[in-house]
Structures are given as C-alpha cells and as structure tokens.
C-alpha cells in the first residue's frame, strides 16, 4: 500500500460518496482519474485488504438481536468445535484468545428464541458449556482506523 492507498482507505472507511459517480468523486478528491480509483480498489480487494464496500447495519434497528459468547475449549477439540460454531451463519465473528475462555464468538439472529436454540445446539454438539455475555449497554461501536499515522 502506498500513501495514496492509505488516503483512499481513510476516506472510504466512513465517508464513501453517496453520489451517482462515487469513484469519479473520490478521484477528484485524491487527484486521480475515476479509472485509477477503481483500479486501486480492485487491487486492494485482490490483495485481501478490502473485504467489501457496502452498508453496516445496526442489527437492533432492523429487529435482530445479538450476543457475545465464550467457551473453554480443550486444545484437542479446537478444530471440531471451531467447525461446529462456525457452521451457523449467525456466528459472524469468532476468535481464539489467550485465556481459559479461549474461544469468543458473536451470534446474531432474528429473535431471542433463535439465539437460544442455536446456543443449545452448539452446547449439545460440543458437550461444552457456553458463557453468554449479552450487551447491557453499548457505549461505542466504530471500527475506523487512521492510516496516515
């Protein structure tokens, strides 16, 4: 990534132009042609740096519920448990972490009953107990990074 890529990422993280020709507008701001902007974005996608460009929804506002879960997974079962947990489309993030509770995942679904059904299924299939930590209060959700530092 060069300096121009970093500036481009900084702009489109938060403020993708909602105009008829968004790539041309980005080009104007960055002194590039529309084509150059599209080529840079295509390259950043190809290199795996950009996952996608689109909307990030507030799941609660469209009627969905979510929760955070942690499991203590024995080393030898990690692969099996990962496959079981990841098989549910409502599991959107799953991380291994350095703790006795070593697997942490988020689960989103259209109602509370749906989350409970899936968590019970994961517990039954893995024979492990899930610690559930639903948010009681959200102070911040924002994933922007400043790339010019």
């Amino acid at each position: 990534m060069d300096k121009v890529d970093l500036s481009l990422l900084n702009i489109i993280q938060e403020d993708f132009p909602l105009t008829k020709e968004p790539y041309a507008e980005l080009g104007q701001r960055l002194e590039l042609t529309e084509n150059e902007v599209m080529e840079r974005i295509a390259k950043l996608k190809k290199d795996g740096i950009i996952r996608r460009i689109g909307a990030f929804f507030n799941s609660r506002k469209i009627g969905y519920v979510s929760t955070l879960c942690a499991i203590k997974v024995p080393e030898e079962s990690l692969e099996k448990v990962t496959n079981i947990v990841n098989s549910f489309s409502g599991v959107t993030h799953n991380y291994l972490r350095e703790d006795e509770y070593n697997m942490w995942f988020t689960l989103i679904g259209p109602c509370r009953e749906n989350l409970e059904k899936i968590l019970a299924e994961i517990e039954a299939k893995t024979n492990l107990k899930i610690m559930e930590l639903p948010a009681e209060q959200t102070f911040k959700i924002r994933v922007n990074f400043n790339f010019t530092e």
Binding site: Q13, I50, N58
Partner: peptide
C-alpha cells in the same frame, strides 16, 4: 434513522497491518 451505522469499506485488519 441509524439503520445503517456506516456506509463504507470493510477491511481485513490483519492484511491492513493492524
């Protein structure tokens, strides 16, 4: 309405150096 929290890019943090 706050239905869309943000419209922009999703990064793969690891690949982006974070």
């Amino acid at each position: 309405e706050g239905i869309i929290r943000r419209f922009g890019v999703a990064l793969r943090h690891w690949e982006a150096g974070i």
